[in-house]
Design a protein around this nucleic acid. Structure first.
Lengths: 235, 235
DNA sequence: CGATTGCTTGATACCTCTCAACCCAGGTGG
DNA sequence: CCACCTGGGTTGAGAGGTATCAAGCAATCG
């Protein structure tokens, strides 16, 4: 068993980490996500090891989070263990804001992750008095809806190739190099996000490589040979 | 072509209809949706014929709507015509509130529909001054997110039988008689909501009837012989 | 009535899943 | 140092579920 998996609880970290987070907070997320600047972090930076749970579906939703570094996934499970990943969150993304008292999904670290947490109650009181924050919050919620709708279209009406291509284009678009997808997640994560099996994801990637649409320098490094053409494929 | 399809534009209706809508507004929607009571309708009651478009993806989102009677669907299309229905809305439900300037989905009448419309700008100004309305609005948005996530789990990780059962249970649960699903939509609508084909939906319903799980007095009337057992099937 | 629309059913194709073997890189421990 | 183990990934063979193509039925409409 790896050292990572032995870390059963999030680890409060050094003042240096706090500084890193604050620094990051200043430069990150050009416009839309910066409404968290109005909030006071609810504690230290928290760290999670790969596959470690941040919160579980059904837990009381007293905190929400912003990713400082790493990647977080949110997912739901059926009773027999089938899993559907709803979203991946990267540096600057906020997750864990809920309508109800409890979390509707489980959040887990995909890789080594650090996050800052905020108290939900803090948000509630602040939003009540601050129309501007309130508006940002609504915009955030509505854009989550839009993303979920796009995801439904993908899950319900696209075939395996289109799913994988759309995922790669989307992932690369959010990266510094729009033609390179550097994946933090396993094939299983991709499969559970796309509503496929791990084998189908792997086969589809191999297929795309044979067709010279992508290159696979390594399993987690995927070069898009023609991002625009790939983007076309997902309309 | 039917008389319905000839009605190319919504029809403003009689004072009597306005009265009906007002009356309905008073008694409907016990709690959650009643925040629209704080709003002033933006005009008369509007009527739409089956399959008539209420707004299209990409249109400027200057109005949103509340269903007075009938059923509305919202959907997205791929360039080759594949369709994914995102949601069905029934009496009391609100639809068409958007994050961006434009609608992200198309809204169409499933059957004869009447709706009341509201100006988005009205909502914006009112919400800015009214924290209570603002909170309701956020709750509405977050519950839309939760529904979309549930739908993703269905689309990505359930088989045809589970999809159809889940749909019937959900539809019946929102009806007066929780053991009877009276459908307003065609098999095609169901298929596009569930990420299936029309034939698979039809076959699955026949299968469920042979297994004595449901009864089909008519194509649009479906009796759930054991709603609880069916609900179990969708966990 | 004939035409149309919605629905059902059958035969077959095909896409994705399942089960299995294998490869590879990294880590462990003798 | 090397054998071994493990986890992630790839590939193959075959099964199975859903899609596709096609025909037919019933109700509705003109």
């Amino acid at each position: 068993m790896s050292a990572h998996a032995l870390a059963m609880h999030p680890v409060s970290v050094t003042p240096d980490d706090r500084f890193q987070a604050a620094l990051w907070s200043q430069r990150a997320a050009g416009g839309a996500a910066d409404w968290t600047a109005e909030l006071r972090p609810g504690g230290a930076v928290l760290r999670f090891a790969p596959d470690q749970e941040i919160y579980a579906e059904g837990d009381e939703a007293e905190k929400f989070y912003k990713v400082v570094s790493g990647v977080v996934r949110t997912c739901k499970f059926l009773s027999d263990g089938r899993r559907q990943i709803d979203a991946f969150y990267r540096a600057g993304d906020v997750f864990g804001i809920e309508a109800s008292e409890d979390y509707g999904l489980t959040a887990e670290a995909v890789c080594d992750v650090s996050v800052v947490s905020y108290r939900r109650s803090h948000l509630d009181t602040l939003a009540a008095a601050n129309p501007n924050l309130s508006r940002h919050l609504l915009a955030y919620a509505m854009s989550s809806v839009a993303k979920a709708q796009e995801h439904s279209l993908l899950l319900g009406r696209r075939n395996a190739i289109e799913k994988v291509v759309a995922f790669l284009v989307d992932w690369a678009a959010q990266s510094t190099d729009g033609a390179m997808a550097t994946l933090a997640m396993t094939r299983q994560d991709m499969a559970d996000y796309l509503g496929l099996t791990i084998e189908t994801v792997s086969r589809t990637l191999s297929h795309l490589e044979r067709e010279a649409i992508i290159e696979l320098p390594s399993a987690r490094q995927i070069r898009l040979r023609d991002p625009d053409a790939m983007a076309m494929m997902s309309c």
